[in-house]
Design a protein around this nucleic acid. Structure first.
Ligand SMILES: [Mn+2]
Ligand SMILES: [Mn+2]
Ligand SMILES: [Mn+2]
Ligand SMILES: [Mn+2]
Lengths: 219, 219
DNA sequence: GTTATTTGTTAGATCAATCTAACTTTATAA
DNA sequence: TTATAAAGTTAGATTGATCTAACAAATAAC
């Protein structure tokens, strides 16, 4: 394993490469709130670990090994979040900070035991997939709520943003994973969508919100 | 808070001062497996934190503030051990290493929740007292089994040594906390004691073992 | 009460992780 | 296509945690 610092860099690298494919040093630096030279020097260490390929002035590419190591850290993070919510009664907006620390604990048994107690969950409290011991995840066929058409009925299955503020916003609207949403109006003007669900029959959600809500079409 | 490193130093300092009163730099260094100069320089930082009083060439003394901070780390360590055993099914010999890492997690809520789930336990799986949120611990009136007289009946209540090897030795003899022991013989020669308990009716325990078994006299 | 041993201190080096300042390369815009 | 801006690199400094080597003080042995 690397240090906690290196693990955090690798995780950021992994997420960026998942979203964007190619990663720049500056993206990494801003994600981690460090200076560009700091990220630059760390990138060289990660190259030495075989986690990414680094060539001067070229975009960074994560290696299969890097992906493997990253997925094990993400596994620990997401199992922790799930454990905190399911076994310890924490709310979904308060678990990330704790998991950010616990994910660095070096003990297979600890996380495997969490996994077992939780019944080998496939998704974390925010709907993100939990890699299994081999790094494999279950891929659902999700789309953004913002891409749904009027009249569609969908299940809220994951969030592509799990910021505390956003989670608290969702709480305030009683929006949680598993809720069935019906698109009852869509504003071409600003991309906002009006949905009905549970005992909310006319909730207007902004484009920004709808972009972060990942839903599954009912069939 | 200090760094993880500093926290580990403080814990060592606390334990040594509990056992010996005065602490030397070399004891600290050997406890932590670092060189004497390393411990020496760290001691100056701890002095700067107000955790101990340092004067050149004089023994170290922990301050009330140092004790307070130390007891909060020990609280986190012992709650974690208890949680691992009681809630996650770990055995008492496998929890220390994990707790050694988890104790550095910075989250009151995390440990308070453990505490609550466990029902505010007063002792950890090895019988060591768990400090409450104010650093207070319950003090039992324990003596070493090696100090018991023939014929006495006592309850095994704590261990003054929790090394893995020792715990595995105890497992092999079905010795666990709460077991009632009757001293049926005592060898003046080597200090070994023969005890009977549960369905063991003649178990010989060496002086070394008996020194690590803390028992409570029945009354 | 000297001498020898142990213990403690200082100095100086190294490595990880960080920064700022200066410079270079690549990308963008005029 | 050259000028400007953005991104990336290098150099050099800092801080925390560690080491070894050299020296000083305190303690123990004789
Ligand atoms: Mn998270
Ligand atoms: Mn982290
Ligand atoms: Mn322990
Ligand atoms: Mn520790």
């Amino acid at each position: 394993m690397g240090s906690q610092t290196e693990e955090n860099y690798l995780k950021a690298l992994y997420k960026l490469s998942d979203e964007e494919g190619k990663i720049s040093v500056s993206e990494l630096s801003s994600t981690l709130n460090v200076s560009i030279p700091t990220a630059n020097s760390m990138v060289k260490k990660m190259d030495a670990h075989g986690w990414l390929r680094y060539e001067k002035y070229r975009p960074l590419t994560i290696t299969p090994k890097g992906k493997q190591v990253a997925s094990m850290i993400i596994r620990k993070h997401r199992l922790t979040e799930m454990f905190l919510v399911e076994q310890m009664g924490f709310s979904w907006e308060s678990v990330h900070e704790i998991a950010e620390q616990v994910e660095h604990v070096n003990s297979e048994a600890f996380f495997d035991r969490m996994d077992e107690i939780l019944g080998f969950p496939k998704f974390d409290p925010h709907g993100s997939p939990i890699p299994d011991k081999n790094g494999k995840t279950e891929q659902l066929d999700l789309i953004k709520l913002s891409e749904c058409k009027m009249g569609e009925i969908v299940t809220l299955s994951a969030l592509s943003n799990s910021d505390k503020n956003f989670l608290e916003y969702l709480n305030s609207r009683s929006l949680s994973l598993g809720v069935q949403l019906k698109v009852i109006a869509k504003e071409a003007f600003d991309g906002s969508i009006t949905v009905s669900y549970s005992n909310h029959d006319k909730e207007v959600l902004s484009k920004k919100v709808c972009d972060s809500l990942m839903v599954e079409k009912l069939r």
